[in-house]
Amino acid sequence: MFRHLKLIDGSSDKFWQIETKGNSHTVTYGRNGTDGQSKTKAFDSDETCLKDAEKLIAEKIKKVIRMMACRSSLPQRKKELPNPSKLLPMNTLNLFVRQILMV
């Protein structure tokens, strides 16, 4: 079995993969575009290895779902332009800047 997951979000650009061979599996993770880091784990049987691999995949997917659910519950910020009628007139703004510079 082989499973490859990618997370590309904001400044994150990561991958996580698992590959089973017989009674062992290798987990590789890191930044996309790199070889990443690998860890191999051996088990008593092929079935135990597959069970552990499936458990790790389920945990990883659950973590991503939780992360996405938290982000969707955050209030979205709207980038609003200031209302031109609420801006200070230019001569008032100049006077304000001069007062700050004199202090």
Rank of each mutant, 00 (worst) to 15 (best):
6 K>H: 08
27 V>Y: 01
25 H>R: 07
78 K>Q: 06
68 M>N: 15
92 T>K: 11
44 D>H: 02
97 V>D: 05
7 L>P: 02
102 M>T: 11
39 K>M: 12
81 L>Y: 14
89 P>C: 01
85 S>I: 07
63 K>G: 05
6 K>Y: 04
56 L>H: 05
94 N>E: 08
95 L>P: 02
72 S>L: 12
70 C>L: 10
24 S>W: 00
12 S>L: 13
99 Q>W: 03
93 L>F: 05
74 L>S: 08
23 N>W: 01
55 K>A: 12
11 S>M: 09
14 K>I: 05
84 P>T: 10
55 K>F: 14
74 L>D: 12
64 V>H: 13
87 L>Y: 12
61 I>H: 09
19 E>F: 00
70 C>V: 01
5 L>T: 04
50 L>Y: 02
82 P>N: 00
9 D>P: 04
44 D>M: 07
64 V>L: 03
99 Q>K: 13
100 I>E: 07
29 Y>L: 11
3 R>Y: 14
13 D>S: 15
8 I>M: 04
48 T>H: 03
51 K>C: 11
71 R>S: 14
69 A>G: 10
73 S>H: 12
73 S>E: 02
47 E>M: 14
2 F>I: 06
67 M>D: 01
7 L>D: 01
9 D>V: 10
18 I>S: 04
31 R>D: 07
9 D>S: 15
103 V>P: 02
50 L>G: 07
39 K>G: 15
21 K>L: 06
53 A>M: 13
84 P>D: 04
20 T>H: 02
42 A>T: 00
2 F>D: 14
41 K>Q: 11
57 I>M: 08
39 K>Y: 10
78 K>E: 12
57 I>D: 06
20 T>A: 13
18 I>H: 03
8 I>W: 01
45 S>G: 08
80 E>G: 05
32 N>Y: 10
43 F>H: 00
70 C>N: 09
65 I>T: 08
66 R>S: 02
34 T>E: 01
43 F>N: 00
99 Q>R: 03
14 K>N: 11
4 H>C: 10
32 N>V: 15
26 T>M: 13
79 K>F: 04
79 K>G: 02
48 T>F: 01
45 S>N: 12
79 K>M: 06
100 I>Q: 11
22 G>C: 11
40 T>Q: 08
55 K>H: 09
41 K>D: 06
33 G>R: 00
38 S>D: 03
23 N>Y: 00
45 S>A: 10
76 Q>G: 13
74 L>A: 07
22 G>Q: 15
11 S>D: 01
90 M>L: 10
53 A>W: 03
43 F>W: 00
86 K>S: 13
95 L>Y: 12
96 F>C: 05
54 E>W: 10
41 K>L: 09
100 I>D: 08
32 N>Q: 09
93 L>V: 08
67 M>E: 09
71 R>H: 09
37 Q>S: 11
53 A>E: 03
23 N>Q: 07
56 L>C: 05
60 K>E: 12
13 D>H: 10
58 A>H: 03
19 E>L: 06
31 R>M: 14
81 L>I: 07
16 W>L: 13
40 T>G: 13
17 Q>P: 09
42 A>D: 05
7 L>Q: 06
85 S>E: 01
97 V>G: 04
63 K>Y: 15
18 I>A: 07
93 L>I: 04
15 F>V: 13
95 L>Q: 15
33 G>L: 11
91 N>M: 14
91 N>E: 12
7 L>K: 04
93 L>S: 13
102 M>P: 05
82 P>L: 05
89 P>N: 09
90 M>P: 07
33 G>N: 05
72 S>N: 07
54 E>R: 13
